[in-house]
């Protein structure tokens, strides 16, 4: 078990293909990360998140032979999960809400990035600020919200985002900049600016 923890994702994929019991190590390695990601992009309840996660892992298992070690397993798993989450929302006609916790380190990271884009009213409380930023983010078009979450909350690099969203790296950079601009416009409309 200890030995398996030191194995790379690609090695675990090979092992899981030989013995399905070994797949549990991949699930354990990515369960929390992917669960948090689903919550961030969908804002769904725990039960729905678990459904999506389960379907995502089963899809990952079924398609293990299609995993290409030229890509990181993480990006591949994120992509499958991303598609499952989007399909779930479409199928169940759910509206996206944004889950941002006040004390979450990744949320603070995104808020700091977005705060630097605008001049915040001096008298606004931190709690109120997070709430308003959360609302502003939820008003962003899906593609902008997703790219901001992947970059500043999941802390992924351009290449990883490019592999997950299937867009050229240059487009990732452009989309991030446009997302910030769009956020700025929404923030102005919401009188977040001083």
């Amino acid at each position: 078990m200890k030995d398996l923890k030191s194995k790379s994702d690609s090695q675990l994929v090979v092992l899981a293909l030989k013995n399905q019991e070994k797949f549990e190590h991949l699930v354990e390695r990515y369960e929390k990360k992917l669960s948090r990601y689903i919550r961030r992009i969908t804002g769904l309840d725990t039960e729905s998140i678990e459904d999506i996660l389960q379907e995502s892992f089963i899809k990952i298992y079924i398609n293990l032979n299609d995993y290409d070690s030229d890509f990181s397993f993480s990006s591949w798993a994120y992509r499958i999960t991303h598609n499952e989450a989007i399909n779930y929302l479409r199928k169940n006609k759910k509206v996206i809400t944004v889950a941002l916790e006040n004390d979450d380190e990744d949320t603070t990271n995104l808020i700091e990035v977005l705060k630097s884009e605008i001049d915040i009213e001096a008298e606004i409380s931190q709690k109120d600020l997070v709430e308003r930023i959360r609302k502003a983010i939820s008003l962003l078009p899906d593609k902008y919200r997703e790219v901001l979450i992947l970059r500043y909350m999941e802390d992924l690099n351009y290449e990883e985002i490019s592999d997950i969203l299937r867009m050229p790296m240059g487009t990732v950079a452009t989309t991030i900049n446009r997302a910030k601009e769009k956020f700025k416009l929404i923030a102005e409309k919401m009188h977040l600016n001083s």
């Binding site: 549990e24 079924i62 398609n63």
Partner: peptide, 26 residues
């Protein structure tokens, strides 16, 4: 083993799921 990994492996076993063949993807 976490609850989720147990559930997933149970489902995989119960429904006799196996990864699609490498040749299918080729």
């Amino acid at each position: 083993m976490t609850k989720l990994s147990t559930k997933i492996l149970e489902k995989i076993r119960k429904e006799k799921m196996i990864p699609k063949s490498r040749y299918y993807f080729i």
